[in-house]
Design a protein around this nucleic acid. Structure first.
Lengths: 234, 234
DNA sequence: CTTCAAAATAAGTATAGACATATCTGCTGT
DNA sequence: ACAGCAGATATGTCTATACTTATTTTGAAG
């Protein structure tokens, strides 16, 4: 095991076992280097890891303190829905329900930071697993931030897959909420009106501007998990 | 701006602008060190950052490639609800609805990795903002993993706050789902039965075992956001 | 042509040394 | 008492060097 990592583990252990308490100052890098018989750079690396994890707060001259409230990093992948379904051993299919160039409403404009009424591609599609609705996408696409999108053809484009493979992004925003299924949601997901649905809003940007924003409505009962250090799907 | 960071930014730019495409091999550390006039250690640090972000896949001898699978990291903190409410300029209050030592049902046992029937503290509480229900907690606490919990007294304990301040954890798991409010949810959140509720399940562990698992039901309409990512696509 | 071992390679890790920079502490003079 | 400056100090960053380790390539032996 790498030395830096074993130092990080030991420091983590001391924090979890309350040997070093929240808000308390811990020995400086030089002292720890002596204690662990390592170079200062190695101790520095270990402590930086813990600071990234949110366990330590570090400030020049002021030293290193145990963070007051720890932060958890969860990892989301933006999955290719087809692969996700197939990995679960089910047959994937996909249907584009609607698709046209359309002026964006105020709410979407605000989310994207574009002027209201700008023309973007509006796409509604359903992903199926073994013929049953799996998730429902309501998506706006900005061809200006994703050159090549026009050529990809919109007729039966699987936007999710095309974007994952062709449009790297610099920034993303996620939010979760819950909504009662309206008439359309219920019809497309083949469930009853009023059914509680987990809704994920996701927007991505690159240096040319917003790429896409999407509202994903999951199949009733779906659980979206995120555990520390693990890759998870959605 | 630190050199390592500007190298990372430049590499990121080349990926986003498709100069280096997915799956493609990028120059090795030594070559990049020459190009950017830096030591190899500095280039290494920059590329490690990008690999952590999920943008690059690195393997000894095989070199560094642009990652195929997009991964986005979002950071959750476990908030102190009281502070969250007060920061929004509202008055916080809190009510413990039920609380007793109770054998855990199978579902909770499975989630915690403990034997069914083990005695844990079961707690139900409501957090209020300006007198209106803000969120509803249904929590199981393991005193064995959080010594001092007994002394903290369960009568009107704000478990959320006590835990954040006194029980650092090593691992956490989150999941989101949506549920229609049942009778009890509706009563405690002062909403109608059937209302779609965003549900967060959260479990934390330290080296002594599971600390707590909690089901949080948010006020109707609540949106749980997580921003900041940096990778691929859609 | 196959198998397997040795060589080459690129990343992984650690080190000592140096300098930069933020910020805390204490001193100084008014 | 107080403002402001000077030093001290802990972390931030970079470099050159060395050695380690996983993996691919090569090439020799069967």
């Amino acid at each position: 095991m790498p030395k830096a990592q074993s130092i990080a583990d030991e420091v983590r252990r001391r924090i979890v076992e309350l040997k070093w308490r929240q808000g308390e100052r811990i020995p400086d890098e030089a002292d720890l280097a002596v204690e662990f018989d390592a170079a200062r750079a190695t101790v520095n690396k270990a402590l930086q890891v813990l600071a990234d994890e949110g366990l330590l707060d570090r400030k020049r001259r002021a030293g290193t303190r145990v963070a007051i409230n720890p932060v958890s990093k969860a990892t989301f992948s933006i999955p290719i829905v087809r692969e996700q379904v197939e990995e679960a051993g089910m047959a994937y299919s996909h249907r584009v329900v609607a698709q046209r160039l359309s002026p964006i409403p105020a709410q979407i404009a605000a989310r994207l930071g574009l002027p209201e009424g700008e023309l973007l591609v509006h796409l509604r599609a359903v992903h199926y697993a073994d013929g049953k609705p799996y998730q429902l996408e309501d998506r706006w696409l900005n061809p200006r931030a994703a050159p090549g999108l026009q050529q990809a053809g919109f007729r039966d484009l699987n936007a999710n897959e095309w974007l994952v493979r062709n449009a790297p992004y610099l920034r993303a925003e996620f939010s979760f909420s819950a909504e009662n299924a309206d008439r359309r949601d219920a019809r497309l997901l083949q469930t009853r009106q009023g059914q509680a649905l987990l809704i994920l809003h996701r927007t991505t940007w690159n240096d040319l501007g917003p790429i896409t924003t999407v509202r994903v409505a999951f199949q009733p009962g779906h659980r979206f998990g995120a555990g520390e250090g693990r890759d998870h799907a959605g």
